[in-house]
Simulated scan of single mutants.
Amino acid sequence: MSKRHPKLWTKDFIFVSGVNFFLTLVFYLLIVTIAVYAVDEYNASTSQAGLAAGIAIIGTLSGRLLIGRSVDQIGSKRVLVGGLILFTLTTLLYFLNLNLPFLLLTRFLHGLALGIASTACGTIVAQVIPAARKGEGIGYFSMSNTLSAALGPFIGIYMSQHASFQLIFVLCLVLGLFSLVAAFFVKQPLLAPLPASEETKGFKLSQFLEPKAVPIAIITLAISFCYSSVLSFINFYASEINLVNAASFFFIVYAAVILVTRPITGRLLDVKGANYVMYPAFLALAAGLLLLSTVNTGVTLLLSAALIGLGFGNMQSCTQAIAVKLTPPHRMGLATSTFFIFLDAGIGFGPYILGLIIPSTGYREMYVILSVFALATAVLYYFLHGKKEQAKITAA
């Protein structure tokens, strides 16, 4: 393999991508079923059931904040194995049918373990991908999230209709154990961290967030806020406009478009720079949200899914690649954690914020507003990163 085109599909890259896929598959599988479980088993109210689903995201954020500052010092593989052990142990807690507070605690701890393990996955991938293929490699790696986001809800909904919740938990346990075994086959490059006196002395915000990654993470927060409106409300919206059958294929189309385009956009990011991916993706996201606000047929609903996949799906991997490219190797773990903290915050808190305005706007007007918001974020991107990116290209 030439130095100009170093090998990407190494054993470590394949194994850690697989681990990440099964981790996030469990997350998405449970997030669509646990609310129903809370209602059926504990007579939870709607708000309590929603908390049972969403508190895992709070746990994930906590896990990233907890481990982000230490993952490079401890060692990303050690963090990965430790996170997966905790992930497997907390999966066992689902089998203890005690009460609703215990379920909420289980969900929080499960999310905490996911945050730790997935941060380690992202860090290892950033370390094993050759610098010349960083955008392409992260694009392929993030497909594991895309596939799990499409398959997890499908499997969860199907099993909740045809199997017991105990069987669902058994599947989650098996997937967790499989990930744990696979993690032992992963290696990562040995990186020399900065001396502790430089990295951890005193209390600094830079111990929890990577400053170089924050500007692009802000863009990630904004676009994931837009996407949260689709992830959380598409089924309610489809029911309102009588397109429930078409909506069942929404995320399949979304994932298919990403699978086709992400290898191309990842390579384009490495060769041409981030602006060549980001600006068209902003337009695609805005167009998809605007089209979503007007749909009356299944075809236009699925076309909006394709545009949103082309937009948000590719921006998600692009912004992650930018975050790690801007960061020194010894702080890649913190950069990865920073990226996911902002991503999770947008997806996790977006539905709550949007839920407050939907009674006043309705779904259609909400998607119009978010379309404009996506375009405004493109302007913000120019000032936070795009202008510097263009100057670098011009200077070269």
Rank of each mutant, 00 (worst) to 15 (best):
T319V: 12
V36W: 08
A391L: 10
L109R: 07
A196P: 06
L268Y: 02
L151T: 14
I58E: 00
E240I: 01
A345G: 02
A305I: 00
V214R: 12
A305C: 03
L375W: 06
S45C: 09
V230Y: 00
L23S: 01
Q207A: 11
L375R: 06
M332K: 15
A378F: 08
I308D: 03
A284S: 14
T265H: 02
A131F: 13
L114S: 14
S179G: 07
K272G: 05
L93K: 14
P329Q: 09
R267H: 07
T200L: 11
I85G: 09
L105F: 14
I138L: 15
D40Q: 12
A323N: 11
I393G: 01
G54Y: 09
G54V: 08
P153L: 12
L209G: 12
N245Y: 10
L96R: 14
L80A: 04
V170E: 13
A246S: 11
C318W: 00
K387V: 10
I58P: 02
G313C: 03
I157K: 13
V36L: 14
T336C: 11
L285S: 15
V253W: 04
I57E: 04
S17Y: 03
I347P: 00
S229P: 05
M366T: 10
P195H: 12
K387L: 03
A281P: 04
V186G: 01
L283S: 07
Q48L: 12
L100Q: 06
A120Y: 08
I55L: 14
I138Q: 14
R64Y: 14
F349V: 03
V230P: 00
V186D: 03
F165M: 07
G313Y: 05
I264H: 08
I157Q: 12
Y227D: 03
F208R: 09
R107K: 13
L268K: 13
Q161P: 07
F249Q: 08
P351N: 09
L92R: 13
I58Y: 10
A217R: 08
V32H: 13
Y254K: 06
P280S: 10
V16C: 01
S224H: 07
G139Q: 08
L285G: 02
S17L: 13
V36A: 08
Y140C: 05
A284H: 04
S293V: 00
L104A: 08
K204M: 11
L343Q: 04
I357Q: 01
P195V: 15
V257D: 11
Q166P: 05
S228M: 05
S224C: 12
G313N: 01
A396V: 03
A132W: 09
V79G: 14
L30M: 13
A306D: 04
Y363S: 01
L310D: 02
N235Y: 02
N20E: 12
S197T: 09
D344A: 03
Y276K: 15
E365W: 04
A374D: 02
A149I: 08
I14P: 04
L171N: 06
L190N: 11
Y352K: 12
Y381V: 15
P280M: 10
S160L: 14
T91A: 11
A53V: 05
L221C: 10
